[in-house]
Design a protein around this nucleic acid. Structure first.
Length: 420
DNA sequence: TAGGCCATCTGGTCCT
DNA sequence: AGGACCAGATGGCCTA
C-alpha cells in the first residue's frame, strides 16, 4: 500500500521554501507523525497489558473491571500499514542528508575548555521559555495536528480490520455481499444470541429440565432474555433475526422465508435436540450426530443428489414441513437400503457443493440480482420494510424454501446443509 | 439528485 | 505533553 498522496508531493516540492520546511519538519524529520507513531510503538514498553495480537478481536471472555488505560495500537508484530510511506520518507530523508562529497568541508569543532564555567539553566518558575514566533507556533500546531490525524487514521484502519475479521467468521450470505459496519455488528449480535439460545436449549434437554416434546423457548422467554442489559422485544427479535412479520406467512402456498414454526416460536424441541429458525437459516442441534445448518440462500446444494434417493419424503412437523434433521425422520434413506445420519462424509459433500455453488448462476428469474435491485441490503436483512408480501416471497427460488417442494422441484439446489 | 456509506480531518476530553 | 478515544463536519463514491 502506498499512502503518499499527490498533494503531499506537491507540498514536498513546493516553490515556497517555508512551506517546504513546515512539511519537512512535520513529516521528514525524526519528529514526524508517521515516524514517531511507528517508532514509539516499537520502543515504548506499555505500562498496561496491551491487546497486541493482530488476531485478537479485542474480546475478553473473562469480564473484569474495565481499565481506562490508554492502549498502544501497534506492536512489533503488527504489520504497520504505513511501512511503505515510512520507507519512502526515510529514503527522502537520506536523500536530503549531505554526503561526504560536499563541496563545503565540515568545520572542525573546537576542543572544550575544562576551565570554562558551565552555563546554568533555570528550573521551575524561574525558567523562562524562549518566545516562539507565530510562525513557529503555527508549525508546532500543524505538526501536532498531522500526527494526531495520522494516529486517528491508523486507529480507524485497525477498527476496520477488526470488522473485516468479524465479517469473516459470520455466516453471511449471499457471499458476494459485504455487510456494512452496522449490519456486521447487528448480525454478530444476533448470531451469538442464536447460538447461545441453541446451546441453552440443548443443555436443558440433556439435563431433563424440559420435556422433549415441550417448548424450549418462547417469545416471553426471549423477551426476558437480557443481553447487555437490553431487553429483546418481540418486534426487535423479529427484526434482529431478519424474519418477516408472521402475517406474511403464506398459508396457501405453505412456504416462506424464516417464518416461525407453527407454534409461534422460532425454536422447536425435538426428541433428538432442538431446531432454531433464524431468518432463512435453520439450525438443528441434536444428540445423534445430526447437527446441521439449513439455509435457503441459493448458494449451495441441499445435499449431493447421490446421497439419498427419490424416496426422501418431506415430513410435516406441526404443519411445518422440512427435510432432514427432523422430528420424525432422523436419517436419510440413501437409496441403497441404508440409513445415514449427517456425518463427515456429508460435511465434505457440503463443502464441495458450496464451492461449486460459488460459481453457479441461477435460473430464469436471476433471483439474486432481483433481490439486490428490489430492495436495499438493509431491507433484505431486516425484512422489516416490506410493504408487499409478494415482494418478500418474490416468486423466485431464493425465498421459497425448496425443501417444501422437493417432489415438484426435484432437489432444486437452493439449500445448504452443514454438520456443526 | 437525494440518500446511504465511508474515509478523513478536526477539536475536545480523559488519562498516563 | 502526548496518546487514545469520541463525535461532528465534510467530501467522495455509489445507487435508486
Amino acid at each position: 500500500m502506498f499512502f503518499f498522496f499527490f498533494s503531499d508531493l506537491v507540498k514536498m516540492f513546493s516553490t515556497d521554501f517555508d512551506d517546504y520546511c513546515d512539511f519537512n519538519d512535520s513529516i521528514c524529520s525524526n519528529d514526524s507523525g508517521f515516524e514517531r507513531s511507528y517508532n514509539d510503538t516499537l520502543t515504548t514498553t506499555p505500562t498496561t497489558p496491551l491487546k497486541q495480537d493482530p488476531s485478537d478481536l479485542g474480546i475478553s471472555l473473562t469480564p473484569g473491571k474495565e481499565s481506562h488505560a490508554r492502549r498502544k495500537l501497534f506492536s512489533e508484530e503488527y504489520d504497520y500499514p504505513f511501512k511503505d510511506s515510512i520507507e519512502t520518507i526515510k529514503a527522502f530523508e537520506e536523500h536530503l542528508k549531505p554526503t561526504n562529497n560536499t563541496s563545503t568541508p565540515k568545520k572542525e569543532r573546537k576542543a572544550k575548555d575544562p576551565n570554562k564555567p558551565k552555563r546554568k539553566y533555570a528550573n521551575g518558575k524561574n525558567r523562562v521559555t524562549r518566545c516562539k514566533s507565530p510562525t513557529q507556533i503555527l508549525k508546532i500546531k500543524r505538526n501536532r495536528r498531522m500526527k494526531a490525524n495520522d494516529r486517528e487514521r491508523n486507529r480507524m484502519h485497525m477498527l476496520n480490520e477488526a470488522l473485516d475479521r468479524l465479517r469473516c467468521v459470520l455466516p453471511t450470505f449471499p457471499e458476494d455481499t459485504k455487510l456494512t459496519k452496522i449490519e456486521t455488528l447487528r448480525f454478530a449480535h444476533n448470531y451469538i444470541f442464536a447460538l447461545s439460545q441453541t446451546l441453552e436449549s440443548l443443555d436443558n434437554i440433556n439435563s431433563g429440565q424440559i420435556p422433549a416434546d415441550g417448548l424450549a423457548l418462547s417469545y416471553e422467554k426471549i423477551q426476558n432474555y437480557s443481553i447487555a442489559g437490553e431487553k429483546v422485544t418481540k418486534d426487535a427479535f423479529r427484526d434482529m433475526f431478519f424474519v418477516p412479520n408472521k402475517s406474511d406467512f403464506d398459508e396457501t402456498r405453505n412456504h416462506g422465508c424464516g417464518k416461525p414454526f407453527t407454534n409461534g416460536t422460532h425454536f422447536m424441541q425435538t426428541p433428538e435436540g432442538v431446531l432454531i429458525s433464524v431468518g432463512n437459516v435453520t439450525v438443528s442441534v441434536n444428540n445423534k450426530g445430526g447437527n446441521c445448518i439449513t439455509s435457503t440462500t441459493g448458494t449451495g446444494f441441499f445435499t449431493h443428489p447421490a446421497t439419498y434417493g427419490d424416496n426422501m419424503i418431506p415430513n410435516n412437523y406441526y404443519g411445518r414441513p422440512y427435510g432432514p434433521c427432523n422430528y420424525n425422520e432422523t436419517y436419510y434413506d440413501t437409496g441403497n437400503g441404508q440409513e445415514e445420519y449427517f456425518n463427515q462424509k456429508n460435511y465434505e459433500i457440503f463443502k464441495n457443493a458450496f464451492d461449486d455453488a460459488k460459481n453457479k448462476r441461477y435460473g430464469k428469474n436471476d433471483d439474486y440480482s432481483y433481490v439486490k435491485s428490489s430492495n436495499s441490503l438493509l431491507e433484505y436483512n431486516q425484512m422489516s420494510s416490506f410493504s408487499n408480501v409478494n415482494e418478500y416471497t418474490q416468486s423466485n427460488y431464493y425465498y421459497e424454501d425448496q425443501r417444501f417442494y422437493r417432489n415438484s422441484y426435484n432437489r432444486v439446489q437452493t439449500a445448504v446443509n452443514a454438520q456443526m
